[in-house]
Amino acid sequence: MATVTLKGTPFETVGNLPEKGSKAPDFSLTKGDLSEATLADFKGKKIILNIYPSVDTGTCAQSTRTFNAKASELENTVVLCISKDLPFAQARFCGAEGLEDVVMLSQLRDDAFGKNYGVSFTTGPLKGLLSRAVVVIDEEGTVTYTEQVAETVDEPDYEAALKAL
């Protein structure tokens, strides 16, 4: 398990991020139209998983905006923003912000993503939500970069994630 902090107070996640060089675990997450998205749906593309607790917090919203701006400049790359927010809230946020270059996905129906990627909080006030992390996956489905953000209110290292592409 990983230990991260929320404003300096330590909390634990269910596990650790996938190891660099390993195959990315498959997932089934809910899209805005309530259909399912799997890792296989993005086969052949470079993938940035932008994982966070809720788009309704300042840092999560900012990471979505930042990756949206960067995604428009990337070839053969998709940014998946993943949280436990309802797809309706995710769509509302992107609509209000005019964000069109990220794919919002919800862990609405199945908690396997958080467990398989090691990002579900198991203790603290955010228990059950996803911790802030970034995972980069290449076109072959191999993990090339991971970052478990140590302090939940901090933004991820965007440049390091983009460099891993």
Rank of each mutant, 00 (worst) to 15 (best):
residue 27 F to W: 07
residue 27 F to L: 06
residue 27 F to V: 03
residue 28 S to K: 15
residue 30 T to N: 02
residue 31 K to D: 05
residue 31 K to A: 15
residue 32 G to E: 09
residue 33 D to V: 12
residue 38 T to M: 05
residue 39 L to A: 11
residue 41 D to N: 13
residue 41 D to G: 14
residue 42 F to D: 03
residue 42 F to A: 04
residue 45 K to G: 09
residue 45 K to P: 05
residue 47 I to Q: 00
residue 48 I to T: 04
residue 49 L to P: 00
residue 49 L to C: 13
residue 49 L to M: 15
residue 49 L to W: 04
residue 50 N to G: 11
residue 50 N to E: 12
residue 52 Y to D: 08
residue 53 P to E: 11
residue 54 S to A: 15
residue 55 V to K: 07
residue 55 V to T: 15
residue 56 D to S: 09
residue 57 T to Q: 03
residue 57 T to A: 10
residue 59 T to L: 06
residue 60 C to D: 04
residue 62 Q to R: 15
residue 63 S to A: 09
residue 63 S to R: 07
residue 64 T to C: 09
residue 65 R to M: 11
residue 66 T to Y: 07
residue 67 F to A: 09
residue 67 F to T: 05
residue 68 N to Y: 05
residue 69 A to F: 03
residue 70 K to R: 14
residue 73 E to Q: 10
residue 74 L to H: 09
residue 75 E to T: 10
residue 76 N to V: 02
residue 79 V to G: 05
residue 80 L to W: 02
residue 83 S to R: 09
residue 86 L to V: 11
residue 86 L to P: 09
residue 88 F to P: 02
residue 88 F to T: 12
residue 93 F to Y: 14
residue 93 F to E: 01
residue 94 C to H: 07
residue 94 C to D: 05
residue 95 G to I: 01
residue 96 A to I: 10
residue 100 E to W: 08
residue 106 S to Q: 04
residue 107 Q to I: 01
residue 109 R to G: 12
residue 110 D to E: 13
residue 110 D to H: 12
residue 110 D to P: 07
